[in-house]
Computed example of a mutant assay.
Amino acid sequence: MRFFATKIAFVLLLLLAGCFAPSKADIIKKAEGASTRADLESALGEPSEVSKIGPIEKWTYKAADGAVIFLLAGDSVTFEVTEGP
């Protein structure tokens, strides 16, 4: 019985964590004015995903309503786009 209660508590914690995820608008607002890699990481923390396309890095931040993607060329933030609903 205790194992079942622990499982239920864990599932509830996961659901609550999803409720407090930032929205795309929140992420964009926090990143406003970030023009360098250091600025962006300082404003938003580490990205959920990082991938490289040649010299370009794609930083993805997951949001409650999709994701926000920033493209970095060298040290500069060059572009931002959202995906999802």
Rank of each mutant, 00 (worst) to 15 (best):
R37D: 15
R37T: 15
T36N: 02
K29V: 15
R37H: 15
E41Y: 12
T36I: 06
A31I: 04
V50G: 13
K30N: 07
G45A: 04
G45C: 07
K58N: 08
S51E: 05
I56S: 02
T60Q: 07
S35P: 08
G54V: 10
I56R: 05
A25K: 13
E49K: 13
I28Y: 01
P55C: 07
S51C: 02
S51K: 02
D39A: 03
V50Y: 09
I53G: 13
A25I: 12
T60E: 03
K58C: 11
V50L: 13
A31R: 00
W59D: 01
K58A: 13
E57I: 12
G33Y: 08
I28R: 05
K30A: 08
T60I: 14
I53D: 10
G54K: 11
G33C: 04
A34K: 08
E49F: 09
G33D: 05
A43E: 03
S51T: 05
I53C: 13
A38W: 09
K52T: 15
P55I: 12
L40R: 00
E32N: 09
I56K: 08
P47M: 04
S35D: 08
E46Q: 10
K52E: 14
G33L: 04
S48K: 07
A31D: 00
S42P: 12
K30W: 02
P47I: 00
K29G: 12
I56P: 02
P55M: 10
S48L: 09
D39L: 09
D39C: 07
T60D: 02
S35T: 14
G45L: 09
T60Y: 03
T36S: 10
A34R: 03
P47G: 06
I28G: 01
I28N: 05
A38N: 13
W59S: 00
L44V: 04
I27S: 04
I56T: 06
W59K: 02
G33W: 02
A38T: 15
A38S: 14
I27K: 00
E57A: 08
E46M: 10
D39I: 11
K29T: 15
K58L: 11
E57W: 03
W59V: 06
S48W: 05
D26A: 05
E41H: 14
T36R: 01
T60V: 15
P55E: 15
A25E: 12
P47T: 01
K29H: 11
A38E: 10
I53N: 12
G45M: 06
I28E: 07
S42A: 15
S35C: 08
K30I: 05
E49Y: 08
A38C: 10
I28Q: 06
A25V: 11
L44D: 00
G54C: 07
K52I: 14
S51N: 02
E41F: 13
D26N: 09
W59E: 00
T36H: 05
K58I: 12
S35I: 14
S35R: 11
V50N: 11
E49M: 09
E57F: 09
I27H: 02
A31L: 01
I56L: 03
A43P: 08
I53T: 15
V50H: 11
T36Q: 03
I28D: 02
E32L: 08
K30H: 04
K52V: 15
L44F: 00
G45V: 11
A25G: 11
E41S: 15
A25M: 10
D39N: 03
I28H: 03
A43I: 01
